[in-house]
Simulated assay, not measured.
Amino acid sequence: MTADRSLRLTRGATVWLTGLSGAGKSTVAGAVATLVSGDGADTEVEVLDGDEIRQTISSDLGFSRADRDKQGRRVGFIAELLSRHRVLTLVPVIAPYAETRQAVRERHAERGSAFFEVYVATPLQECARRDPKGLYARAAAGEIKGLTGVDDVYEHPESPDLEVDTSSVSPEIAADRILTMLREHGVLEYAETSVSF
């Protein structure tokens, strides 16, 4: 008989990944979910992707400042609800306004739910080079207006809980840093389990 170590979630938590389009938010969130699930963790993990939310419960919203704020607060409401029910909730969204992100953080704090803001600080030039959705090319061609980071504002987090740049580290390394942060704050811990041969 030997001892095996697996991750265990001690409480629910929201990991809010903010950054420009193409920064790698969804990729990093997916890597975190894979690492946690693949480790045999005793935990529930959900990824609330901003694009999927916009296609469903926020299909009525556009891209005005008011609508972007409302979108962020809606996602924040769902994230806090999941977090409160012992789910590790990963939220890869642009969420360009500091006021919106602060409101989501405060909602979590008021209800005793853990919240961590991760700034995926990949530079605009790299995001535009990747351009996975073709948005930067369309903006350059004048086909769309109001692209965050180009001709619309993105308010960089001043004091994020963690900052990663996927132009200098892989999504897996960024994900590992997030797991390290969660372990340091007691959200995740290693649990010894007995394995028989």
Rank of each mutant, 00 (worst) to 15 (best):
R138W: 09
G112H: 04
D49Q: 14
L9Q: 07
E163Y: 00
A95C: 13
G40H: 07
V36S: 02
A23S: 12
A141Q: 12
V169F: 04
G142R: 03
T14A: 10
I178L: 00
P123F: 11
Y97R: 00
Q55G: 15
V75Y: 01
R73K: 07
T27L: 07
A174Y: 12
A109Q: 11
E126N: 01
G72D: 03
S59F: 15
M1T: 07
G72K: 00
E52L: 15
G30I: 02
V93K: 00
M181T: 11
L48K: 03
K70D: 05
L61A: 08
D151H: 08
S21H: 06
A23Q: 06
R105P: 09
A98L: 14
G134W: 13
L82H: 04
L61H: 03
L135D: 07
D131M: 14
E52Q: 15
G40N: 01
R86F: 08
L182Y: 11
T14C: 10
V47S: 02
G149Q: 02
D161H: 13
V45E: 08
V104A: 09
R68P: 04
T43V: 12
E117H: 08
Q125G: 00
D131P: 12
F63L: 10
R130L: 14
D4A: 15
R11V: 02
I173L: 10
I94M: 13
M181W: 14
I173N: 03
R54L: 14
S113F: 07
Q102V: 13
A31G: 01
G142M: 08
A191R: 13
F63N: 01
E46R: 12
A29M: 02
G134A: 11
L9D: 08
H185Y: 13
Y119W: 03
V28S: 10
P123D: 15
L135R: 11
L17C: 03
S26D: 05
S58G: 06
T56S: 15
F197L: 04
G40P: 00
L82A: 11
L82V: 08
T100L: 06
D131I: 14
P157I: 05
T56K: 08
S168I: 04
R54Y: 13
P96G: 08
I173Q: 06
P92C: 01
D151S: 06
V120R: 05
A66H: 00
I57E: 05
